[in-house]
Design a protein around this nucleic acid. Structure first.
Lengths: 157, 157
DNA sequence: ATTGTTATGGTCAAATAAAGTCAGAGATAG
DNA sequence: CTATCTCTGACTTTATTTGACCATAACAAT
């Protein structure tokens, strides 16, 4: 007995699979109407199923002309990267750990030096004006999203 | 379904791109008639999209023969540009504003598309798991450090 | 020169149209 | 029977659209 959430997932998945590029724009209200559920259920589906770990990036825009943008990325690469940096949910990523991870990506030609430096500017301690615990948490989020993007790009330059 | 504002933006952008010199004169009422919207919507588009961060200057004249003059600032000395931009970085930087900064840097050839995307992954809302106020504050810090780095590098690629 | 008229453009706040959050209720699998 | 997953709705945040009212410039008629 598939739940509504399962059906919504399937529905979205289908659109993504059949899209060129694996990038789609949908509207939250459209979906909730189609499945006669409350809009926030769409958020639930997105949050539980279209995660980085499963190979998706999601962005959105509010207001008139708003949308959900769902991007499918190659899962296998993503998983490899995620495991390498050992980013689990709620994981703490220290500055050193982040630095080493970036170095690794440069060594593998996934990033060049300049890109590494740019990224470092954004997640070094001085750029995150919050307590240590949060710095680590934020680096985790940031790196996940970065990895998602890089996986999709295939690290090509 | 792009919003009307998006279409107006595209329309203006197209004219600017196809102009010699990157300087155009348009009339607010012409535009609002063409897109059947109220005149003040044009102001909205100008204010949210043709910003200094993205490398545009806008001047206008009222009264008979009035106009909007939109200038795409030509590529200038990177450092000068960066200095100008960094002045615009205050304590709170919203997601849209950050996006505009990045777009501007790309338009000025200081960043390439890929670099812009990488940076965006790190400072978009989804990557900063904290409240709105703090997101803005952090983006400020991050962008300042980024610009500091780019200024040193001279924006060369 | 002064004044009135008309043609522009500018500002701001309210209304509308999305999407996001979160906590609690309900359902289900082990 | 309990832990986890799903569903719901009230409240929040953000982006866009609209309209009422304001400011300025050119022109025409004193």
């Amino acid at each position: 007995m598939p739940s509504i959430s399962d059906m919504i997932e399937k529905f979205i998945l289908n659109i993504v699979e059949n899209s060129e590029e694996g990038i789609i724009h949908i509207q939250r209200n459209d979906l909730s109407t189609r499945f006669s559920c409350v809009p926030s259920q769409i958020n639930y589906v997105i949050k539980t199923r279209f995660t980085i770990e499963r190979g998706f990036l999601v962005e959105s825009k509010r207001g008139e002309g708003g949308f959900l943008k769902i991007v499918k990325i190659p899962v296998i690469q993503t998983k490899v990267y995620l495991e390498r940096v050992s980013i689990g949910i709620n994981n703490y990523i220290g500055a050193e750990q982040a630095k080493n991870f970036l170095k690794g990506l440069v060594e593998e030609n996934i990033l060049n030096e300049r890109e590494k430096n740019i990224i470092w500017q954004l997640l070094k301690d001085e750029s995150l004006p919050c307590d240590r615990e949060n710095k680590g948490y934020q680096r985790g989020k940031m790196l996940r999203n970065l990895i998602g993007y890089l996986a999709k790009e295939g690290g090509k330059r």
